[in-house]
Design a protein around this nucleic acid. Structure first.
Lengths: 156, 156
DNA sequence: ATACATGCAAACATTTTGCTTTGGC
DNA sequence: GCCAAAGCAAAATGTTTGCATGTAT
């Protein structure tokens, strides 16, 4: 990992197996059946340093779960509805997915040329603003996404 | 406009014709030819209270310019490359486009159920963070997007 | 045993490109 | 007149659904 890429992997300090168990438990609690495909999808998302697309999860050359695209699609959709993962609107045509770790919030730096995604190790200054907006707007289940876009050194 | 929707339309305080002229001038300066389609696209983006999709610009029943979808697509792409408009990665499948008005920055509040988009009249607390990231990351042409997502009162 | 999950294939929506013609400069 | 822009149509990309079968509970 280059200096430019460096960011805190707070999740790396935890036991990934434990994280997987926790995630599975949450999913089961909310009505999903514990299948091999579900386990594969959650494991990939937990281990990924940055958000993944449907294609990443379903058909990456090595990481691929053997699960069908449609199956993965439906799992991702359900997991998002259940609040276990989050869908991000990055600039690609494809949607990106990432685990929600309670108490952890991530912001991203994205290259508009090559699509490279860095996770940012920053103190997000938006939290109190979010509370204010929640109150004023009457929106529920409020969260935010903060993304920085630009041209990375390699593409410049 | 309801209280919940209220936001400052700073652009509403300006002369829209003047804005169009300015935008056309910028486009011409950067090498585009002054055509009817270009004028239509810029006018729609300038007058729109929120970002528009390609479909919005090309084939909305009433607002539509008569220009072909492909033409509009290529115009939007060029305008974005030239830094005259910005492409937003909202959560819809479609990309959204909005004018860049120098010195003006907008954040958005989006309903994850119905897709409704509100522009937020807030003091964005991210500017100085952006400067810091620009320095550390060596990314150029850096900008940010801040979006709030949630379920609007109507959908709740 | 039942209802949910899966795989395969097909339908969709949106973006992107090729090629010929038109029109701004 | 030349080269960029427009129009039409087709290809590409990524998402979503229908339906028959398998499997967790």
């Amino acid at each position: 990992m280059s200096a430019t890429h460096s960011h805190t992997h707070s999740r790396a300090h935890r036991d990934p197996e434990c994280l997987l168990c926790q995630a599975l438990e949450r999913a089961r609690d909310r009505g999903l059946r514990q299948t091999a495909a579900l386990e594969d999808v959650l494991r990939m998302l937990i281990e990924a340093p940055t958000p993944l697309t449907l294609a990443d999860v379903a058909s990456s050359p090595k990481l691929a779960s053997k699960a069908d695209r449609a199956t993965v699609y439906r799992l991702l959709t359900k997991l998002e509805k259940l609040g276990i993962i989050r869908r991000l609107g990055l600039h690609d045509r494809a949607a990106y997915y990432t685990m929600i770790f309670p108490g952890e919030h991530n912001d991203y730096l994205v290259c508009t040329e090559c699509g490279r995604i860095d996770r940012l190790a920053i103190e997000c200054p938006v939290e109190e603003l979010e509370a204010q907006i929640a109150k004023q707007s009457k929106f529920t289940r409020l969260y935010h996404e903060l993304m920085f876009f630009g041209v990375c050194p390699k593409c410049a």
